[in-house]
Design a protein around this nucleic acid. Sequence first.
DNA 1: GAAGGTTATCGACACCGTGTCGAATGAGTC
DNA 2: GACTCATTCGACACGGTGTCGATAACCTTC
Lengths: 218, 218
Amino acid sequence: MSVPARDRTSAARGRRPARPSGDDRELAILTTAERLLAEKPLAAISVDDLARGAGISRPTFYFYFPSKDAVLLTLLDRVVDEADAAMRRVFDAPAAGLRDGWRRAITAYYETFRAHRALTLAWAEARSGNAEVRELWAQVFEAWVQQCADAIQAERDRGAAPSGLPARDLAVALNSMNERVLYATFSGDGPAVAEEAVVDVLLEVWLTTIYQRTMPAA
Amino acid sequence: MSVPARDRTSAARGRRPARPSGDDRELAILTTAERLLAEKPLAAISVDDLARGAGISRPTFYFYFPSKDAVLLTLLDRVVDEADAAMRRVFDAPAAGLRDGWRRAITAYYETFRAHRALTLAWAEARSGNAEVRELWAQVFEAWVQQCADAIQAERDRGAAPSGLPARDLAVALNSMNERVLYATFSGDGPAVAEEAVVDVLLEVWLTTIYQRTMPAA
DNA sequence: GAAGGTTATCGACACCGTGTCGAATGAGTC
DNA sequence: GACTCATTCGACACGGTGTCGATAACCTTC
């Protein structure tokens, strides 16, 4: 099972054409952004902060990126690629048993987003206000849901899992849960599951809902 | 089981003191806000929009509310009270069986937030940028998680549910799922469960994870 | 029925962040 | 040495926020 390409226009997001020298500046902006995001929320970072951090003036920033959000989008593209790659690795390697297969899939997301905590939080922050970010997330999420639904259906077809909820609905619910729970754990505000326990908690919910029949007639 | 009071300073959020006449104006601002939120996202609504909508000038707005966010907070307080009231009704009325009890609890949230779709979306939008909103939500969420964890523990104690994940972790996961899934369903962007099916989908996940043992040793 | 307080209102201002324009700089090419 | 073209930034216009001080409307209370 391969991860479907999402056809993101990764290269077209940054500078207008592809330039020779100013690549360093573009990179400087990106690294400045990730550094600042570790310190303060996206809303508290101005274009001027980004520009100064990269050693250029504010107007010059606009030569490299059309807006602050475009920088975030570029950063996001990278993380998504990382997550997809991690996912592909999971599906390529043979799983040592049922539990282990699902565990590795959940761990793949967990690790990827944990490695980019600040970015993950900024992502959520930008999603509400920016249509492009929203659409990028929708694409990514759809791919995961589809993949997950296929996997559930395969388990049902081979008789390992009972039928019940439509596979897609279950996949949406489980992926939504993961997103929200991981976000809460990483952001630390509001009730959350402890970081050491979070993968196991999610895994139990996944296994139970996928492999167990719904409640016995009460 | 009663819903614990969250000690919100509801009255202190609006106008500085409690005034006689200008109450209409305050109300006008609140209804304008909810009306505008049905049309456009929170970020696209300015203090000026709110003021004009209520028939006053921008500076006068600040006589009634310290900021745009304060208006939202006031609106949110009301919806939370509504949700708590609905919840209290659920726990007061005797349930016709296990499934029915949980179903009514999930439906209570669903109905409340569906009745204030626009507000629910604005809430999520404001949460990232505003600490007060974040804290209000954390309080509300914590109360629900606590209540839910208690209910699960009670079921385990009376032998109706098997032990497994810590009740609180399970409660956090399930409530997080509900939040995210309902949000996706109401907002309509990204993969979501259909509105007619969403309560049933959530219910099945709740029942299965609460009452079924985790996966049989595979 | 003036005097004094409080409630409510708004014009004008200072501030900050965004995004654009047009003019300069400088490196490479013919 | 003139021509291009990438790169840079000062200066501007715009739109939003929040505050200040002046003023109007309305109670009281003597």
